[in-house]
Amino acid sequence: MSNAWTIVEAPLLRSVDVMQILGRGGRLGPVMGYPEASLAWWLVSDGAEEHLADLPQLLVRPRGWALCCPPPHQYMHGRGWLERPDGNGKLTSPVDLGAAFSWVSPIRMERSG
């Protein structure tokens, strides 16, 4: 396992759907959520930029970008782990993340009336 990782920012609700897809295949790494801002942050292996550039709903943060993270079993400052890091170094593959986000259709809300 590599010690290098990248942070990918994504919409929270779509991230929850994607987590279910990746979790079934055992390909899910740590994901942190921030419900107040409807955001999630994925910890993925390096190389995310080249695999996720065509997905406008995903924002690949630059190397060194600081993310305020609570300890794995705590919720702090409105943030908590949806999938906790467990110390084994497992990260989500950017290829798998991109494929899952491409497959999950966006939630569309329509006004009635």
Rank of each mutant, 00 (worst) to 15 (best):
V16W: 02
W41M: 00
R84Q: 14
A10I: 02
S38D: 13
L91Y: 04
P11D: 06
E110I: 08
W5Q: 07
P85D: 07
E110L: 12
M76H: 10
E83R: 05
V44R: 00
A4Q: 13
E110F: 13
L82M: 15
L22M: 07
N3C: 06
H73V: 08
P35Y: 01
P94Q: 06
V60D: 03
P30W: 01
L13D: 12
V31H: 00
I107K: 11
D17Q: 10
S15D: 03
L12P: 03
P85M: 06
S105H: 13
R24V: 06
E110W: 08
G26A: 12
L67Y: 01
E110M: 09
A4C: 08
E49I: 12
M19L: 13
Q57C: 13
V18S: 01
G23F: 08
L58K: 01
E36I: 12
R24C: 05
W103D: 04
L67V: 15
A53H: 10
M19G: 01
G98T: 07
G47V: 13
L91P: 03
N88E: 14
E110V: 12
V44F: 02
P11I: 03
L67T: 02
E9K: 03
R14Y: 03
P30Q: 05
V16Q: 12
L43G: 01
L28E: 02
M76T: 08
G64K: 11
S38Q: 12
A53C: 05
C69M: 09
G64R: 11
P62C: 06
P11G: 08
G47M: 14
D54S: 13
E83M: 05
V44C: 14
R24K: 11
C68G: 07
R61F: 07
L55A: 10
L82K: 01
A37E: 12
S112I: 13
P72A: 13
G26P: 11
G25S: 15
G87W: 09
M1I: 07
P85R: 02
S102C: 15
V60T: 06
L55C: 10
L59Q: 08
W42E: 00
E9D: 08
G89N: 09
Y75E: 14
L82S: 00
G25M: 10
E36K: 11
G23M: 08
L12V: 08
L97D: 03
W103M: 12
V60F: 03
D54M: 09
T92Q: 05
V95I: 15
G25A: 15
L13Q: 10
P70I: 00
W65C: 06
G98E: 04
E36H: 09
G98N: 02
T6K: 02
P72L: 04
A40D: 02
V95A: 13
A4G: 10
L12R: 10
D17N: 10
L12F: 07
P11N: 03
M19P: 01
E110D: 06
L59N: 07
L22G: 01
G87T: 09
C69V: 15
